[in-house]
């Protein structure tokens, strides 16, 4: 166990040593929040027909801030993994005692431990300054707690995408698709209740809603599902993702050994 902790610490240290990248993400975060704040202001103007008071905008912004927070905290480990696989470093590393996959995940979680608090601080400050305090402080607390778990699961899925490099070679297009599906089905910019009912039912079959919309909606008046149920859902997807990733990885390693790398 301590070996994985060591990898996590390494990830943590690396993330701290690259403030430029994090700064860039923070800037992006604030700007995107600004853009969407403008969109929702414009929407509120045009929606006398929606019968919802403009106060709704404040909740929207906190929702947005939280979905963005979960998304942007997760380190982009898939590209590092892709690099490792392409360079053939994996062949050497898998003979080491620590499970390569476990090490990579630990590394990502270490980086997450640095990014998540920073992004959370930025999220709260920005949302507060744009839309005032959250409607339910308690809800915010729960949302943050569950959001951390969700961000960890997103990191796990990033590892999974990285492993796909064994077959795809170049995972960037696969990542784009995953990311856009996460945006849309995960309710990044638009809470799921806006979507047609059938759509939402289909979306629920995927992990995406649980990752973003789930935690963020806990801070609003219409949570997607109760916190407890959400946690169970997240754990379920995490386990499923992990099992599939491990199976895929072992398969790839076996093929590597057979073909001589």
């Amino acid at each position: 166990m301590s070996k994985y902790l060591a990898f996590a610490k390494l990830g943590l240290r690396e993330a701290r040593a690259e403030p430029g990248e994090l700064l860039g993400r923070v800037l992006f975060f604030v700007l995107i929040l600004g853009v969407f704040s403008s969109i929702w202001r414009a929407v509120a103007e045009s929606t006398a027909t929606m019968g919802q008071p403009t106060g709704q905008r404040g909740e929207m912004l906190w929702y947005l801030a939280l979905t963005e927070w979960v998304l942007m905290s997760a380190p982009l480990v898939q590209f590092q993994i892709e690099d490792d696989i392409r360079r053939g470093d994996v062949a050497y590393q898998i003979t080491r005692p620590a499970s390569w996959l476990g090490a990579r995940l630990a590394h990502g979680l270490g980086a997450l431990a640095v990014r998540a608090p920073v992004m959370l601080g930025v999220a709260c400050v920005t949302a507060w300054s744009m839309a005032g305090p959250p409607t339910r402080l308690g809800g915010l607390g729960v949302a943050i707690a569950v959001g951390l778990v969700a961000a960890a699961v997103v990191t796990l899925f990033h590892v999974a995408i990285g492993v796909a490099a064994f077959w795809l070679g170049d995972i960037a297009p696969a990542y784009w698709i995953w990311q856009k599906l996460l945006f849309v089905l995960g309710g990044l910019l638009l809470p799921l209740r806006f979507y047609p009912a059938l759509f939402v039912r289909l979306a629920r079959l995927t992990p995406f809603p649980a990752l973003l919309a789930g935690p963020a909606s806990l801070a609003t008046n219409e949570p997607l599902m109760p916190a407890g149920v959400l946690l169970v859902t997240l754990v379920f997807w995490a386990l499923l993702g992990w099992i599939i990733t491990r199976a895929a990885f072992n398969r790839a390693v076996r093929r590597l050994n057979v073909n001589g790398g």
């Binding site: 103007e45 045009s46 929606m50 698709i177 856009k180 945006f183 849309v184 806006f194 047609p196």
Partner: peptide, 17 residues
């Protein structure tokens, strides 16, 4: 896929500014 965001939003709010 990304454009579906607009499709859904504007099905509810046909005109924004």
């Amino acid at each position: 896929i990304f454009f579906t965001f607009w499709i859904v939003l504007m099905s509810r709010v046909p005109r924004i500014r």
